[in-house]
Design a protein around this nucleic acid. Structure first.
Length: 889
RNA sequence: GGGUCCGUGGUCUAGUGGUUUAUGACGCGUCCCUUACAAGGACGAGAUCGGUGGUUCGACUCCGCCCGGACCCA
């Protein structure tokens, strides 16, 4: 129990606890056999040095879940990793040191990358602590550390042994700028306007059919094709048309000569050809796009690669050798025009595959690469075992998986990544993958400790290709659970954005299925994106960019976290709103003031008060708090953080502060010791419970507040979820009545311009209650409204004039079905006074509907009364559901 | 072109197993310094729940179509 500050100062308090929690180790995973595990497969972010608001959304969700599960008594492992490998770091290092990666030895270059990565991690780590995230930093991992990439290699070796990993010469997506293969998932499409060139391939003279050949652009025997990529003419190996295209029906099998380059190509039919595009005849190259690869394989065409790894034309392009793709496009077009075979050019909308890292248009090259076999059925079967939150996110994964037509190419021609643990025998060509016992190993530095099993040679050449970084990050659930020492069981939660379902989620499911035949996680919680206040993607140029740090320094991390939680339900995109931060900040102040008020009335013995003589108001707030705990628990279990926090705010602000505290003041300030004690104990119980329930959302404020309570433990974050004593329902109803009456009188005073503590002569409460039940407790009420309160039974001494009715559709609708409308009309047309009289004399209502007399139960209608004071009385009347209040002032 | 999600007061958001005075926040207006809090309290104005058909006794909620937006894919 500490002295409480007058004002809540988030800057100093958040800083203080940030450090203290680390020293106390409150977030450490205990590896306790007695408690259920709650393990989070935390995303290892790429160390960009900037932990942005989009990251923060996902981490807030994880932190809410982690903190909630600690309160529930789970042994929570919330680790943090870093996905270090990758091209951007290589590029940054090259820039910073003004070198090219080939200027220095591989090992030295790797060291520079590691050094750079570490500084980036530090910056992001600081923001994570600022935001109050509760990772267990003793479980931090970095994919660039040998103990991690050694496991990546182990997974590779095991998958190679099981036939999942193989090496093949197969067309792959290739980024000519990064000069590496990339996977389908790393290719994005960009819609742009390109040029469509119409050009004529001349016919082969031997195949001339002079009489019936149609005229195509002045060349009687040629064929006109349309292409956006004339630079690939040298790679042309065929021409395709749709089999139903009558223009070409009789020409299938004819051969043509490719202009400028002279190779002969044959016209074939394939249903995939869109006959409405261009001339309906399309040239097939090795390779212009994925469709070309399909045709090339299906129609057994030649391979004429013409693009180099750096995106230049090869010697096959003759005089155009060495030109870059875009230069070649223009120069070849000019040459075609000069040769009089370029008939036309027009602009066209096209979708271009681009590298997701650098936006460079990709090429498709055929190279020896390492692949991971993609078994769609197996992956989807596993994915279906996972609970997707929200559910529809599964559809994204399914659609992606079903659309995959190539295996996953995992080799990259880069440096800063996990080495592929393989060697080639220089004498016989045997490919050897490492033994597990040798891992981690860099094959460019170390050879196998044995000779070639095929030929006995010791001339090994280490593989210089490295792995796709998704090979690293797709084993995170395995790594954080100490695979392979511990047998793998699915972890409890994966949290990630929907933008990386096709990558991180997909690959992780693939890998744990392949390696352990197990789903990686029980549940996948998918977050949306964060937009700026104007509803657009945040971008510095649009001026709608907000950084977590900015919000923290202007308000607080606790306010930021709440704004994120309330931005929308998990899975939807969140629009960042400063006003949510403002209102969250006010709520923090409110909670602080409640705590400040309460702690003035607590002493060291408050928590241990025995058998407190609770009054109805106490029982009401305790029951209410217990209900709230149940509801918040249900929301948290369903990962509805928005609903959980809303529920808590309503309760703390309105029930606890506005209603309960106001009712309590009389007893706290002027009550006798026993009366005071009950009030203090109930208040203590409810406040303590509230702070604990709120702690996942506002960890700093709740910690500071919790420390001011008597009997506090080391931290609110090591406490348990509240479990409160309950009382019978009637006590709750009596309490609620008091609350409602007090609130109504407060409103009435305000309406009549009175001070809220104005004294009143007398309050009479007419309550319809069973004589057997305990009487209404007016003690707190009386002091709260500052008037003597009398409970009366029977009819108040006022005239009740029926003025209207309120038909209950939920009763009338199902009962009368298609007559319901007529019944309601009849009721509304009737005189309310007459209906009241019927109820009093007959116990039922009878109305005339289409000439028939219809009987209704009194439940079907509410009679609305208006009170009119008996003449001469100075009285105001307030009608509540459960009571009528007469105010004498 | 395919898939998914979404369209609720000025703004953002909740909601319904079908019948509600449709939630809350911010903003706006009026009143109030009442011994935790004016960074507060009381109250009020402001929404025909994107449009249109249908199913139904009844649709903001279910179904169809249309319009608009977002994301993923081709």
């Amino acid at each position: 129990m500490t002295e409480i500050e007058d004002e809540y100062d988030p800057d100093s308090i958040e800083q203080k606890w940030r450090e203290q929690w680390q020293e106390m180790g409150v977030y450490q995973y205990r590896d306790d056999e007695e408690r259920p595990d709650y393990v989070i497969d935390t995303p290892p972010p790429y160390p960009t040095g900037n932990f942005h608001i989009g990251n923060a959304l996902g981490w807030c969700y994880m932190d809410f879940a982690a903190r909630y599960h600690r309160l529930r008594g789970d042994d929570v492992l919330f680790p943090q990793g870093w996905d270090c490998h990758g091209l951007p770091t290589e590029v940054k290092v090259e820039e910073n040191h003004d070198i090219h990666r080939t200027d220095v030895p591989r090992e030295e270059f790797r060291e520079l990358c590691i050094e750079h990565t570490e500084s980036q991690i530090d910056a992001m780590y600081e923001t994570m602590l600022d935001l109050g995230f509760s990772q267990d930093w003793t479980h931090e991992f970095r994919t660039m550390d040998p103990e991690y990439w050694g496991e990546t290699q182990r997974s590779f070796v095991r998958m190679a042994d099981d036939g999942y990993v193989y090496r093949d010469d197969h067309p792959v997506n290739w980024c000519p700028r990064c000069e590496t293969a990339i996977a389908d998932a790393e290719v994005e499409t960009d819609d742009r306007t390109g040029t469509l060139y119409y050009l004529t391939f001349s016919g082969d003279s031997e195949d001339q059919r002079s009489s019936n050949s149609r005229t195509q652009s002045g060349d009687s025997d040629g064929i006109e094709i349309a292409t956006t990529r004339p630079e690939l003419l040298a790679a042309c190996v065929g021409i395709a048309v749709n089999p139903d295209d009558e223009r070409y029906a009789d020409r299938i099998g004819e051969t043509f000569e490719v202009p400028l380059f002279g190779q002969e190509v044959e016209l074939f039919a394939d249903e995939e050809v869109d006959s409405t595009f261009g001339t309906g005849a399309v040239m097939v190259c090795t390779f212009g796009d994925k469709q070309d690869v399909t045709w090339w394989a299906e129609h057994d065409l030649d391979l004429r690669p013409v693009i180099t790894e750096s995106g230049h034309l090869t010697e096959r392009a003759g005089e155009f050798e060495g030109l870059g793709v875009s230069e070649a496009k223009e120069e070849i077009a000019q040459a075609l025009a000069a040769a009089d075979v370029l008939n036309d050019r027009e602009s066209t909308e096209q979708s271009v595959g681009i590298c997701w890292r650098c936006d460079t248009p990709i090429e498709i090259l055929s190279k020896d690469q390492w692949f991971v076999r993609v078994d769609q059925a197996e992956i989807l079967e596993t994915a279906q075992e996972i609970e997707w939150v929200p559910e529809h996110m599964y559809a994204r994964l399914e659609e992606w998986a079903e659309g995959m037509d190539w295996d996953w190419v995992i080799s990259r021609q880069r440096v800063f990544a996990t080495p592929i643990p393989a060697w080639f025998c220089e004498d016989c060509g045997h490919v050897h993958t490492a033994d597990e016992s040798a891992l981690p190993i860099d094959p460019t530095e170390t050879d196998p400790d044995h000779s070639c099993p095929e030929c006995g040679s010791t001339n090994w050449e280490g593989e210089t290709d490295v792995m796709d970084t998704w090979m690293d990050s797709s084993i995170t659930p395995l790594y954080v659970t100490d695979w392979p020492e511990s047998s793998f069981e699915s972890v409890q939660l994966r949290e990630q954005g929907h933008d990386i379902i096709r990558t991180w989620a997909f690959y992780t499911i693939l890998r744990t299925t392949a390696l352990e035949d197990e789903r990686p996680w029980d549940r996948a919680l998918i977050n949306g994106m964060v937009f700026g206040e104007d509803g657009n993607k945040m971008s510095k140029s649009k001026g709608n960019f907000v950084e977590p740090k900015e919000v923290i320094s202007e308000y607080s991390a606790d306010a930021f976290r709440q704004a994120i939680a309330l931005g929308g339900q998990p899975g939807t995109d969140i629009q960042f709103q400063w006003k949510e931060v403002t209102s969250a900040s006010r709520f923090l102040t409110k909670v602080w003031n409640i705590t400040k008020f309460a702690s003035n009335h607590f002493d060291a013995d408050t928590p241990s008060i025995q058998d407190p003589a609770y009054r109805d108001a106490d029982k009401w707030i305790l029951i209410r708090c217990s209900d709230v705990a149940d509801q918040v628990e249900a929301h948290m279990d369903a990962y509805r953080f928005d609903a959980a926090l809303r529920e808590l705010r309503e309760f703390i602000w309105h029930d606890l502060a506005d209603d309960y505290l106001e009712l309590l003041k009389g007893r706290l300030y002027e009550g006798r010791p026993g009366e005071r004690d009950a009030a203090r104990h109930a208040l203590y119980t409810v406040l303590s419970a509230s702070l604990r329930m709120l702690s996942p959302f506002a960890p700093f404020l709740t910690e500071e507040a919790y420390q001011t309570l008597p009997d506090g433990t080391e931290s609110v974050h090591t406490e348990m979820w509240p479990s409160l004593q309950t009382f019978n329902a009637d006590a709750a109803q009596r309490g609620r009545l008091i609350v409602n009456v007090a609130s109504a009188i407060r409103g009435w005073k305000s309406d009549t311009g009175m001070a809220l503590n104005a004294e009143l002569d007398r309050i009479e409460l007419y309550v319809d209650r069973d004589e057997e039940q305990p009487a209404i407790d007016t003690y707190d009420l009386s002091s709260a409204v500052n008037a003597p309160v009398y409970i009366e039974s029977g009819r108040p001494n006022v005239e009740l004039v029926p003025v209207g009715i309120d038909p209950d559709h939920s009763v009338i609708g199902p009962q009368f079905r298609d007559q319901a409308g007529a019944v309601v009309s009849a009721l509304e047309a009737a005189d309310p006074a007459e209906l009241t009289a019927q109820i009093e004399t007959n116990g039922e209502i009878s109305v005339d509907v289409d000439g028939d007399s219809v009987a209704l139960d009194p439940d079907a209608v509410d009679i609305l009364d208006e009170q009119r004071a008996a003449s001469g009385e100075e009285v105001d009347v307030i009608e509540l559901d459960a009571a009528t209040i007469l105010i004498y002032s």
